[in-house]
C-alpha cells in the first residue's frame, strides 16, 4: 500500500508518480509531488517509480518564490 495524503491505495510493481495521480483520480496539474523525502517534478512523473509503503503528497506549487 502507499499513502496519498490521508488515503491509502494499493501498490504495484513499477508504479510511477503519474500512475498514482491517475489512480486517485485527481486531474489537477500538480507541479511537484513529494515521495517520502524526495521532490519529483512534473517532467519526471512518468519515469519516477514509487516504492511500496511510500507516502505521497502532491503539491500544486502555484506560488512561492
Amino acid at each position: 500500500m502507499i499513502k496519498v495524503k490521508d488515503r491509502k491505495i494499493p501498490w504495484r510493481e513499477g508504479m510511477t508518480v503519474a500512475d498514482v495521480l491517475s489512480e486517485i483520480g485527481d486531474p489537477y496539474p500538480y507541479a511537484v509531488v513529494r515521495v517520502n523525502e524526495k521532490s519529483v517534478s512534473r517532467p519526471d512523473f512518468e519515469r519516477t517509480t514509487v516504492p511500496d509503503g511510500a507516502e505521497v503528497y502532491p503539491i500544486p506549487m502555484v506560488a512561492g518564490g
Partner: peptide, 21 residues
C-alpha cells in the same frame, strides 16, 4: 512536514525543482 519541510530544509528544496523546470 508534508510540503517543502522548510523547518528542516529552508528554501533548498527549490534547487532541484528549478533545475527540473
Amino acid at each position: 512536514p508534508k510540503q517543502h519541510e522548510m523547518a528542516v530544509l529552508g528554501t533548498t528544496h527549490l534547487v532541484t525543482i528549478m533545475d527540473d523546470y
